[in-house]
Design a protein around this nucleic acid. Structure first.
Lengths: 128, 128
DNA sequence: GACAAAAGTTAGACATGGCTAACTTATCTA
DNA sequence: TAGATAAGTTAGCCATGTCTAACTTTTGTC
């Protein structure tokens, strides 16, 4: 029961960092800035907050890595994200909208609701 | 196509103010503070921002009223809120959780998704 | 290897939305 | 109606997350 209550910012960052490491081999501030629609100084500042929170490991001017707990948080976020997106899509919503809405919605979905989404998703497979 | 992009704060406040006026006859800062879980000075400050934004009308130490555009925004928010709550409940989620989650989710639901929720809700009536 | 371009950082400002402490105004009640 | 209590405001502080301008470091290319 790790009630970590990280900020949405933290979740968005670790989620994206994990994705960038997976797809690009490394996570660079310039990519993060582009993807999140913010400027590089904002990324620098936020990454240092993440570092202070023990979620990332990093040397100045170098690529960004996740710590174990960052990794863990990222995995949870990505899982939740996938469920929300899939659920929205199962309602007939186009992928782009589903992606966009999920980014906002995922931070406000309780465990209860997430489970319900998963359940509904399973139902939609049966009736497809 | 009034792309007003009011803040979540503004939406939460006008929504609540409309509800208080309906159920209590008037909207008072002390009630707003309790319901939103903030302290009275925060309410004072935010109400003055809402006033500056043309959403509420109000004299110091008096009750709070919505302007026409505040009214309009409140109505839209309440409508969206109702749909999101009803939709979550239709998934089998308990009302309390649905209410809690909806408060966070409703600000991130696009028109497309809202329509899809409404559609799914209609389906659930048929199959109830 | 030098130097230009790209990437990253630092410093400092700003808006939002929260707080406490102290004060003022309104309301209730004896 | 006076005084106590409740409600509301003001002033000033803080954290978060954003920005621009100017600087430093790294990278890529001739």
């Amino acid at each position: 029961m790790r009630q970590a209550h990280e900020s949405e910012m933290a979740e968005d960052y670790v989620e994206l960092i994990a994705e960038l490491i997976e797809t690009r081999g490394e996570a660079r501030p310039v990519e993060i800035a582009e993807r999140l629609g913010v400027k590089p100084p904002t990324v620098t500042k936020n990454i240092s907050r993440l570092k202070a929170a023990g979620l990332v490991r990093r040397e100045p001017y170098r690529a960004i890595f996740l710590t174990d707990s960052g990794q863990e948080l990222a995995e949870a976020c990505r899982q939740r994200h996938r469920i929300v997106v899939a659920f929205l899509c199962s309602l007939g919503i186009d992928e782009e909208t589903a992606e966009r809405d999920a980014e906002g919605i995922e931070h406000h979905v309780s465990e209860t609701t997430l489970v319900a989404f998963g359940q509904a998703l399973k139902q939609s497979w049966k009736h497809e």
